[in-house]
Simulated scan of single mutants.
Amino acid sequence: MKNLLNTVYVSDPEIYLSLKGQNLNLLKENETVARIPLHNIEAISTFGHQGASPALMSECMKQNISISFFSSNGRFRGRVIGEVNGNVTLRKKQYRISEDEEKSAKIARHMIVGKIFNCEQILKRTVRDHALRVDTNKVMKAIDRLKVSRSEAGNCTSLDALRGIEGNAASVYYSAFEECILNQKEVFYFNNRNRRPPLDPVNAMLSFSYSLLASETAASLEGVGLDSYVGFLHRDRPGRTSLALDVMEELRPIVADRFVLKMINRQQITKKDFIVKENKAVILTEDARKNFLQLWQKEKQETITHPFLKEKIQWGLIPHVQALLLARYLRGDLDAYPPILIR
C-alpha cells in the first residue's frame, strides 16, 4: 500500500514557490520563510497569485510531486504533474468504456450507490448520537427516501436516469443536512446547496473542501495510470477532471461533509472566520483558511479500516485506494467496482 506523505498547503497569497537544492523554498518579499525537503512531500497546493518557479515545477514533475493552483477563494485553477504513469492498455480500456453509455452506467451506478449509502450514514449517525437535539422524524423520512433512491440507482442502466436519481437523492440529503449542525446554528445555517459563489458559511466550507478533494482525487487517479479527465457519469468537458468528479461522488459525504460538520460542531471555526464580499459571496479569511488546511491535513492522518480491503489505512489514502480499485476493475481483476461504504 502507498505511504501517505505530506501535502504542503500554502495559504498566504504573497508566497512564491521556488527550488533551493532539493528543497521547496517559500519566499515572501524575496525572503525565505520556510524550506521543506522535497522527499517528504507528495503534493503541493498553493492559494494565491505569486506562482512557482520553472525550476521547482521541473523538479516536482521529475519526482512525481503534483502542484495544484487555487485562487485565493479556493477555486481550482490547474495542476502541474509529471510523466503519465501506468500503461496505455489501461487508458485505452478506460476510453472505450467511456464511449459506451451502458458500460459507463455499470460503473457509475456503483459510485452513486456508494454516495447515497454514505449520505444515509451521515444522517443516521446524527440521529443515533443526538436524537434529543434534532428533528428525528424529518431525518428518518429523508433516510427512508434515500434508501429508495439507492435501490433505484443499483438497478439503473441509463446514465440520464442515474443522473436524475442522484440529483433527487442529493436534494433529499441536503433537505436534512442542517439537522447535522448542532452548534452555532445562528451562523451556520443551511437552506440549500449554493455555489459560484457560495452565499453562506456552510456552503463556503463545502465548496472549499470539495475543491481540495477534487484535486487530491485527480492526483490519485493519475497516480494509478488513469486519465482523470475522462469520466463515466460526468461526460467530457474541456478542462474538467470528469473521472475525479465521478470517484468523488461517494467520497463527498464521508470525507468533505463529515469534516465540515466536525469543524462546526466542535466550534473550530466561528462567525469571525468569514468575509462577505460585495457580490454577497461568502469566503474564508486568510487565517481561517490556514486553520482549515491544518485541520484537513491532520484529519488525513487518522486511520480507518477499509470495508472492502479489510485493511487499516489513513483517511488521506481513501482517494488513492478507490482509484486503485477502479484500475483493477478496468483491468479485469475485479467483477465490479467496489465503492467505499462507511457505516
Rank of each mutant, 00 (worst) to 15 (best):
L221D: 02
F76V: 01
M1I: 08
M140G: 02
E14P: 00
R328P: 07
S207E: 14
L330N: 03
I143V: 14
P37E: 05
A153W: 11
R193M: 09
V84R: 14
P319S: 11
K185Y: 03
R328Q: 15
K124Y: 10
I122Y: 02
G21L: 05
T217R: 03
A142Y: 00
V88P: 00
L284I: 08
P338T: 12
N64C: 04
K271R: 13
I143N: 02
E286L: 11
P338H: 08
G114R: 03
N87A: 03
L17V: 07
K106P: 00
P307S: 09
L334V: 13
A153N: 11
D246C: 06
V187P: 05
M248W: 00
C156G: 08
A142F: 02
F308I: 14
E152T: 10
S53H: 00
F259P: 02
L324S: 14
Y16E: 09
K138T: 07
I67H: 07
N168F: 06
F188M: 00
K300L: 14
Y210P: 09
L162T: 06
A256Q: 01
L293F: 06
A169I: 13
D333I: 01
G167Y: 00
N168H: 12
M263Y: 06
R266G: 15
K280T: 09
S58N: 13
L243K: 04
R235C: 01
R77G: 11
F70E: 04
G86L: 07
H110S: 12
K103N: 13
I67P: 08
Q267R: 15
Q267D: 08
V88E: 07
L341M: 15
L24C: 10
D333G: 02
K262T: 10
V127P: 05
N279E: 11
K290C: 12
E59L: 12
S68E: 06
V80K: 06
P37V: 00
L330K: 06
I122Q: 13
L326R: 06
L38W: 11
T136Y: 01
F259N: 09
V224M: 07
E29L: 13
R145I: 02
L245F: 08
M57D: 03
N23W: 05
Q267H: 11
L182H: 07
S66I: 04
A214G: 09
K147F: 02
S209M: 05
G154W: 09
A244C: 03
L226Q: 10
Q297N: 15
R252D: 04
Y337M: 12
A153D: 13
I116G: 04
L293K: 06
P54R: 06
K262D: 14
G21V: 05
Y174E: 09
S211E: 12
D12N: 15
E102R: 12
A176P: 03
L146V: 08
F208H: 10
K290F: 12
K298L: 11
T136L: 02
N265A: 11
N30K: 15
E302V: 00
V230K: 10
I143A: 03
V113T: 10
R96L: 08
Y329S: 04
L182W: 06
M61R: 10
F232Y: 14
N191Y: 15
N73I: 04
W296G: 03
L325W: 01
V10P: 00
I15E: 05
V224K: 01
L243P: 02
